[in-house]
């Protein structure tokens, strides 16, 4: 369960929506049209347990998400879920990694301040002694072309799930 977003944390004019999350819970999110550009040369890295609860974040994750490390550790990864992301994308992600395979896609993430940032994300299962113990997610700077394609495509995918 993730706490609803706090209007006091939001920078700029915002919209409000209640998201239905993959685990069956819901969250009120507040979001703006302010984009934070992906920083050159950096990777955003996190690991989760098998339930998608964050167990490790690197400094770039903290900087780009706007949350403190303390707020992130123990939170579901869906704390970054932006309402413009179609649920089918995350269903595909979970279906893929639970088969033990690598997932890659372009994701619009939600910041604590209501802004957003686009990433190219890769998620892989962490296999230790033949057992999946969690997942590692690494995000890198996406191409403008790919992001532009996703901005057109993603609104058409909401009816699929």
């Amino acid at each position: 369960m993730i706490a609803d977003m706090n209007p006091e944390d939001i920078v700029g004019d915002y919209k409000e929506v209640t998201l239905k999350l993959f685990d069956g819970t819901s969250r009120r999110v507040l979001y703006t049209e302010i984009e934070t550009p992906y920083p050159d040369g950096k990777l955003i890295v996190s690991t989760t347990d098998t339930e998608g609860v964050i167990t490790h974040v690197n400094r770039s994750f903290v900087e780009m998400s706007g949350y403190s490390e303390e707020e992130l550790i123990g939170a579901p990864h869906s704390i970054l879920r932006h309402p413009d992301m179609p649920p089918v994308a995350f269903k595909d992600l979970w279906d893929t990694i639970q088969r033990g395979e690598k997932w890659q896609g372009f994701v619009k993430n939600l910041r604590k301040d209501g802004g957003y940032y686009w990433v190219k994300a890769t998620v892989i299962p962490n296999v230790r002694g033949d057992k999946v113990v969690g997942y590692t997610s690494v995000r890198r700077k996406p191409s403008h072309t790919k992001v532009a394609e996703c901005i057109k495509l993603y609104p058409t995918l909401f009816s699929l799930f």
């Binding site: 990777l43 690598k102 890659q104 890769t122 998620v123 892989i124 690494v138 890198r140």
Partner: peptide, 9 residues
Amino acid sequence: IDLMDTLNT
């Protein structure tokens, strides 16, 4: 190793 694996895609 996991990190390199994510990058090698």
